[in-house]
Every structure is written in C-alpha cells, then in structure tokens.
Design a protein around this nucleic acid. Sequence first.
DNA 1: CACCATATGTCACTCACCGGCATATGCTGA
DNA 2: TCAGCATATGCCGGTGAGTGACATATGGTG
Lengths: 112, 112
Amino acid sequence: MTDRAMQEPTLLLLTALADVPRHGYAIAREVESISGGRVKLRTGTLYGALERLLQQGLIEVHKEEIVDSRLRRTYTLTAPGRAALAVEAERIAATAREATRRLGITGKAATA
Amino acid sequence: MTDRAMQEPTLLLLTALADVPRHGYAIAREVESISGGRVKLRTGTLYGALERLLQQGLIEVHKEEIVDSRLRRTYTLTAPGRAALAVEAERIAATAREATRRLGITGKAATA
DNA sequence: CACCATATGTCACTCACCGGCATATGCTGA
DNA sequence: TCAGCATATGCCGGTGAGTGACATATGGTG
C-alpha cells in the first residue's frame, strides 16, 4: 500500500461528504460547487474513488433506496474517514502556509 | 489535460525553491525538512519533476558549477513558477478551509 | 576499508485520474 | 414528437506523476 498523499479530486470528494451524506451524482455537483467550478469529477474518477474509499473504510454506504426504479446509494464518512480528512486538511494547510511564507520572504524585494 | 492539480511532492519541491535557489539533493533534504520528515523525495520523482518543471517553465537553472569534478546545477523559481505556486497554495488552502469547516458543522442542518 | 552522506541520473512499474462510452428515466422546448 | 438535457450509475483503455530499485562517483568517518 503506497501511502501516497491524497489528490485533489479525492480530497474534495471526502469534503463533499463531510457535512451530509450524498449519492454519487450529488457528490460530483457538490465538488464542482466547492471548487468554484474548477474541478468536475468525471464519472470514472467518481465511482472508482467511491469503490476505493469504501474498501479503505473511509466512507460507507449510508442508505440504499429505489428512485425511479433505479438504485440510489448514498454515502457517508466513517469515523476513520473524518479523521483522515482532518489530518489531510491540516497537512495541506501547513504546506500552503509554508509556501506562502517562503514566497513572501523571497530574499529579494520582499514586503512592499 | 496538463491542467491536473499539482501533487504534494511537486508542491513541496517548488516550496523548497521559494526562498533560495537549491540543487537537487538540497531540494530533497529541504522537502523532508519542510514536511517534518513525512515526505522523502525519491530520486526518480526528484529528477523527473525537475525535468518536467523546467520544460513547463516553472523553474530554471540558476547556476552550474563543478564541485568535486562533478556538475552541480542549482535551480530557481521563474516568475510563472512563483505565480503558479501562489495560485496552488491558495487553492489548497481554500480546500483545507472548506474541509475543516464542514467537519465542524457535522451533518446538522445543512443543504440536503 | 567498509560504510554512509553527498550527489545525479535511468527505468520498469503502479495506480489515481481522465475521457469516452453505455444505459436508463424524466422533463422541457422547438 | 422527439431531440436534447439533467439526473444517475457504471465500465474500460490510456496517461502521467510518483515509486522503488539500480547505477555511478566522491569525500569523510569509524
């Protein structure tokens, strides 16, 4: 298991589930909304990631219902999922802070 | 597309160059330091990324000198590189903020 | 003298993400 | 009327950043 850092689509997917349970398509719309239209989850990415995250135990099926004679599955974060998202959020926030700080202290002209 | 979001190793690499120019190995050490020992840049990732970033114009060769009869190349951020890093830092900071915010408001009365 | 830090580089492989396709329903408008 | 779009789930081949192992070379330390 390569402990590789979470990528943006996955991070946004988990974020979309952080407040309320949602089904696949709703997650995709929410991700687009969160990212200001920047990131549009492809269905390949979406359902692939859901499958992967289920296996990793970061999300779980919240409810299964039949809507218009089709199955709709809603997903929700598990406790480990919430924890993982919190860790990941703090990690990237720290990286962002460090990058911003260094860009500021450029060594060159610096602060205005 | 090439529009794909930057991954952590690349982001840290650029961050390591944000204050002063460094050569490859120094970048690797700096990245390890910045990330608190969490991320160790493999040489495959390092030199592969340097090559890619050079081609993308985000970094450039700052100086080439012979040290111990071996070539040492130091790299520095270009203006587009600084801009890209700033954009990326703000992007992930925003994502982190949103994730943290949502984790806080845990599924109470939000949009269904 | 073995071993490690320093230092740069190649290459086969993996896997998350991409892009396109398939499928099915309900609504809206030319 | 039916073309087209939003809704909704899912598969599959391909791409490319990152991985891990290997290659090579020097200078210092036990």
